[in-house]
Design a protein around this nucleic acid. Structure first.
Length: 791
DNA sequence: CAGTGAGCGAGCTTCCGCTTGACTT
């Protein structure tokens, strides 16, 4: 390890080098490569930031005001102590904008002496890479730091100035930002495209032919007509013509095809493939990957680079040759094309390619296997495919049938891995359908010719993973923020993950067999989608409002434009404070104008018509608690009436008639046990109220038509459930109960719920009052952080 | 399928990127 020591330094005994990296897992690994003279610590990301609760930017100078957040104070003092003791400090944060800024904040906060501080970067975590880094120290790059400050300040200005506009104009507690608002825009616009899309029918013609083989046996050839008909009559006329036509092989073309493997995983591609192949959500993928990283199984999981270290390429090569043979190996390195990629890390790959599988949970094993295969495939030979195209002429007809055959001559990387695609419809494009031996001039026997009605397909809704891909394509967001962004837009209720029920549709299928044409109509479900991202009313209103008032920020190229300026700053060609001032000069008055604009109507408000009963106008709008229908206005003598929009209605499409229906609730439908049975509509959907108790209506019951009889049976059902819920009550104190819940037995006392130790679950019903009180008293204080319970 | 059913006299909410914890509901 002596050679790692800078040679101009005479190190006294016990004087240490201190290396600071961003991630503790990385610190652990590096410490192993360095000797006892080196202590490696982690900064756990940024140690200093703008204040959490306020703008923290001077309105005139636009200078940021940084602070060390409470939860980092202990860490910072530890870093300070160790820095004081150290003879030499190496700042080894990542080699990108954020990393440079982390090092700069460390310098500032720890008060580091420039003479004994060096900035170093590793491109990979190997002994030689680290030795090289230590041999090539440099100084902080203040231009790069300033580019980060510009990024930070701009995002804060946009987020903390736009959000309050939404609080006033739409609804409290909403948010807007450079990344999230554009993500919502993508989803809203995609939904509109789908609404506007009109599916057109067309007719596809397929044929099944027979051919006699030289040995006398029969083979089948499947082919498709090289044109499609756009109306039913033309398709039928074609079938008619086929009746006496002859079908002759007119040409056979063979063409070699090559498929190349996909590059190794980045964060974005890992999220996409884990979603398609393993059904993981993006945050699930990141959580599992984090565990694999911490266990030393994979390289860093937040990366935009497809680069592999030479070590990884070499060990992959060994492993591939060992397992499949030399002809399967083809070492390659890939280059990153992603917009705005900063490439501070390697691609996501197994730390040791020799480990083909690992111990761990099922999820960890599956994700690891996926990463292993993708990495291996990227270092494997191309697949060689022979594609055969056979043209089949039809006498008396201009069009021809085409039969395709694909034979895998050499499977190469396909042996381990094939990338999935998003469009589920066209999965027909599969390899390996063989054709029988044919030659030019062969006469084929017509067995069946089928015309099938199909429909042009409109745009597809985004999934979490396909939205990530789109954001990456636009250069919006970073590997560390894809998953949180997806969560944020769902938490704010701009977007919902849901299933879109398909619609039943009929299609014609006509078949010619012998001399007979049979016509049939079949049924299918069309357009059903699962787990897709759908915009909510709030999402739509906020999006339209922002586009109308802040078109520059909402532009899909906004990030690309400011990134270009950040690059100019990083190259020293532009002053960062000037960029901030130029931006704010336009942005601030824009915000002020929109904020102060006095308008009669709230954003997204829409008048549906006049209520025939009262003669008052009927509106839909976003209320304090979400979308509502309102009859009458606030300045009427009478108070306006409100009704929450049911979940299956949307503000954009609800009609006056549907809206008025809602005001028929709450309604009394009769009496049971001497008190009224009332049907109401609440936040959690329609409910029955009887004797001050509530029962939710199941989805299939319509609150406007439900009978007293059904209501009573639902009440009784609920009572039964209630009874099973109460395991025990106490004579001593009726506020104390033992209840049976979703997560097993628990204690309810004075309106609060308490967990009980697992070992008591079996005898929960036998607990004494004292034992219960014990649990209640010893319950840990609820965390202040858990502000709002998730539903 | 634990329980909630209101409609700004009050104060609060919010961004994007780095990075993990200590916790379950």
């Amino acid at each position: 390890m002596l050679l790692l020591r800078p040679n101009n330094e005479h190190i006294a005994i016990m004087q240490e080098n201190l290396v600071i990296v961003e991630s503790p897992a990385k610190a652990k690994t590096i410490e192993k490569f360095l000797g006892d003279d080196f202590k490696v610590m982690s900064s756990y990301g940024h140690i200093r930031d703008l204040k959490k609760k306020e703008l923290s930017i001077d309105p005139k100078t636009l200078e940021p005001d940084y602070e060390i957040p409470e939860e980092k104070k202990k860490l910072v003092s530890e870093l300070k102590n160790n820095a004081k003791k150290a003879n030499k400090i190496w700042l080894a944060s990542d080699e990108d904008r954020e990393g440079e800024a982390i090092s700069w904040h460390l310098c500032e906060v720890l008060g580091l002496d420039e003479k004994k501080t060096s900035r170093i970067v590793f491109h990979e975590i190997t002994q030689t890479a680290i030795q090289d880094a230590i041999k090539n120290p440099r100084h902080l790059d203040m231009n790069l730091v300033n580019a980060q400050q510009a990024r930070r300040v701009l995002d804060r200005l946009v987020g903390f100035k736009l959000s309050p506009v939404l609080w006033r104009k739409v609804k409290p507690a909403l948010s807007a930002g450079r990344v999230q608002s554009v993500a919502v825009r993508l989803i809203v616009e995609r939904e509109r495209e789908i609404q506007e899309f009109k599916s057109e029918p067309y007719y596809r013609i397929n044929a099944i032919f027979g051919i006699q083989n030289p040995d006398g046996s029969q083979s089948e050839v499947k082919a498709e007509l090289d044109k499609r008909f756009d109306n039913h009559d033309d398709a039928l006329a074609f079938l008619e013509k086929c009746k006496d036509a002859e079908f002759t092989v007119s040409s056979i073309a063979k063409k070699p095809l090559k498929r190349t493997p996909a590059p190794p995983f980045t964060t974005s591609t890992l999220q996409q493939e884990a979603a398609r192949k393993l059904g993981f959500t993006v945050s699930q993928t990141m959580m599992v990957a984090q565990r694999l990283y911490e266990a030393g199984r994979i390289t860093y999981m937040r990366t935009d680079s497809v680069n592999l270290s030479t070590l990884a390429i070499n060990t992959s090569k060994d492993e591939i040759i060992k397992t499949w043979g030399k002809e399967y190996s083809k070492p390659r390195n890939f280059t990153t094309h992603a917009k705005g990629a900063q490439e501070a890390h390697e691609a996501i790959r197994p730390t040791y390619m020799s480990a083909t599988s690992i111990d761990g949970t099922q999820q960890e094993k599956r994700l690891y296997e996926l990463i292993w295969k993708r990495t291996a495939a990227s270092q494997m030979a191309d697949a060689q495919i022979e594609k055969t195209t056979v043209n089949i002429d039809i006498t008396g007809v201009d069009a021809k049938f085409v039969a395709n055959g694909e034979v895998i001559v050499f499977d190469g990387f396909l042996k381990v891995y094939r990338e999935s695609t998003d469009d589920d419809e066209n999965s027909q494009d599969d390899f390996s359908h063989n054709l029988p031996a044919l030659k030019e001039g062969d006469q084929l026997q017509r067995r069946e010719i089928i015309s099938t009605e199909r429909f042009s397909q409109g745009p597809i809704r985004y999934t979490e993973a396909s939205l990530v891909r789109k954001l990456e394509e636009l250069g919006i967001g970073r590997p560390s923020t894809y998953a949180p962004t997806i969560s944020t837009i769902q938490q704010r209720e701009y977007v919902q993950k849901g299933d879109k029920k398909g619609e039943e549709r009929l299609y014609a299928i006509d078949s010619l067999k012998g001399i007979k044409i049979t016509n049939k109509t079949k049924k299918e479900m069309a357009g059903s989608e699962k787990g897709k991202l759908l915009p909510t009313d709030i999402g739509i209103v906020v999006n339209d409002f922002l586009i109308q008032n802040f078109p520059d920020i909402m532009d899909y190229n906004f990030t690309a434009k400011v990134e270009h300026q950040f690059d100019q700053i990083a190259e020293g060609k532009e002053e960062w404070s000037k960029m901030m001032k130029d931006f704010d000069k336009k942005f601030e008055p824009n915000v002020k104008n929109v904020m102060d604009a006095r308008s009669e109507h709230k954003a997204g408000e829409r008048e549906l018509g006049i209520d025939p009963k009262s003669g008052k106008p009927v509106f839909v709008k976003i209320g304090r608690f979400g979308p509502v229908v309102q009859i009458g206005t606030a300045d009427d003598s009478e108070k306006p009436r409100f009704s929450q929009l049911p979940s299956d209605c949307s503000m954009e499409t609800i009609t006056l008639e549907e809206a008025l229906e809602l005001f028929k609730l709450p309604r009394t439908i009769g009496q049971f046990e001497g008190t009224n049975v009332v049907i109401g509509a609440g936040r959690f959907g329609p409910y029955i109220m009887h004797n001050k108790k509530y029962v939710s209506l199941p989805k299939e019951e319509n609150p406007l038509t439900i009978t007293l009889e059904t209501a009573v049976s639902l009440i009784n059902e609920k009572r039964q459930q209630e009874e099973q819920r109460h395991l025990k009550t106490f004579d001593e104190d009726e506020k104390m109960e033992v209840l049976n819940g979703r997560y097993g037995p628990y204690i309810a006392y004075d309106g609060k719920n308490y967990r009980m130790p697992k070992n008591l679950h079996d005898k929960a019903a036998e607990l004494t009052y004292e034992e219960c009180m014990d649990i209640v008293k010893n319950a840990p204080e609820p965390k202040t952080k858990a502000r709002r319970a998730k539903k």
